[in-house]
Design a binder for these strands. Structure first.
Lengths: 223, 223
DNA sequence: GCACACATCTGAACACTGCTAAGATCAAGC
DNA sequence: GCTTGATCTTAGCAGTGTTCAGATGTGTGC
């Protein structure tokens, strides 16, 4: 579109797309910026008018992917079956979707997991973490988790799910057959939720944890 | 030692040491093989007589680090206080040690977590995963976990701990104050263990998971 | 309809990387 | 004391991220 001669219609998006394809084809690190440019038919230095550096491109791409994952998780939770009978059903569906995503796209997942080294600034919306937080709140409202266990619960369930996804994604842990992945996620979510629910009301000095994302969001709302 | 003129006494170990220092100083990716060689005072190509490639060096280093972590975790579990009163104390100590390690050495941890992409062959001993498995078995023996919940329990607790370590390590999750990290690990371990313990004996189609490490070990024992 | 300003992209170059191949240097065994 | 083999070096290749001066368009005000 928009003619392909000198000015490329939307080079920024094209770069991100090409990079994502390359990641999928050759792994999180098996590609170069020059290759991305060449695939689009543009000079190697063109990318620098849209991204500060290669790292910046990777970061931006990973934001895009993360937002897409957030939407997926939200949909998965919304369409969870059996919510009536089982209040945990929505979070289980979320967990299954998270883990399945890692397995469907291990290279992209690896890129995302490795791209956020200490840089909390991320305009990701909806952030997967936020989706999980919302579902935990909803679980409390539905009576599936005692309110006394709620504070900081996301900092138990989120790491658990993330760890499962990460280990499955980079091949450090393997399951037999593709259906088992979901079952494993379900077992993990169930165990964590019932474990949290069984906590004594005044659990020993509950730590106040904050995700980098939440931190940013909080800062934006109260300037 | 052994003269420093032409033949370097133990270049292989020296390379690993220098690489580890560089990782600690500049992050998991902020260094080059040439820099490692230069730091030792050796030509850039010397490393190739001891490692097939840069990746091979990284892999070997991460094995070494992982084995060290395994030992740390074993010691932490062994020296856990309050085992008498609380059968979960050993695993909690292990969890605390795991998470504290990530936080003490985030760059090295990042290297280790990112180095095992699909390559399960790892002569790591004692592997952290094995230490955790042994502690779970011991917990069952001590009556702290029903035997019916034991199968595959490591594939719930291990991801949970790993996720917490990974998120804390790369800055995607932050805790306030250094003591809180341990408390968070404790809460997570407790929740997972009591959650697993509360499972109905015939939990829905318990998946058979295998870690890459266990797989290798099993293969070695039954050829 | 035209000149100008601006965003966009190119070409050439720099310093650096992982890696290879051929040869120099040393230690040890006959 | 010579030879063998391991160990390290020198030189160089192809490819990388990044920069910068300049070419090429696109749109705006006249």
């Amino acid at each position: 579109m928009a003619g392909r001669s000198y000015h490329h219609g939307d080079l920024r998006a094209a770069l991100l797309d090409a990079a994502e394809s390359l990641v999928r084809e050759r792994g999180a690190d098996g590609w170069s910026l020059r290759e991305v440019s060449a695939r689009i038919g543009v000079s190697p230095s063109a990318a620098y008018h849209h991204f500060e550096s290669r790292d910046a491109l990777v970061r931006t791409l990973s934001w895009r992917v993360l937002a897409g994952l957030g939407e997926q998780l939200g949909r998965a939770a919304a369409h969870a079956r059996g919510q009536r009978a089982d209040p945990q059903a929505r979070l289980i569906a979320l967990g299954r979707a998270y883990v399945r995503w890692t397995q469907r796209d291990p290279a992209v997942a690896g890129l995302v997991f490795g791209a956020h080294r200490g840089e909390p600034e991320s305009p990701v919306s909806p952030h997967p973490h936020d989706v999980l937080v919302a579902e935990l709140d909803r679980l409390v409202d539905a009576g599936g988790l005692p309110a006394s266990s709620r504070p900081g619960a996301e900092f138990v369930l989120w790491p658990a799910l993330h760890g499962l996804a990460a280990l499955l994604g980079d091949g450090m842990m393997r399951l037999e057959g593709s259906r088992d992945v979901g079952s494993q996620a379900e077992r993990l979510v169930r165990a964590v939720l019932t474990g949290l629910g069984a906590e004594a009301p005044g659990f020993p000095d509950r730590p106040r944890a904050r995700s980098a994302h939440t931190e940013r969001a909080a800062k934006r709302e109260s300037p």
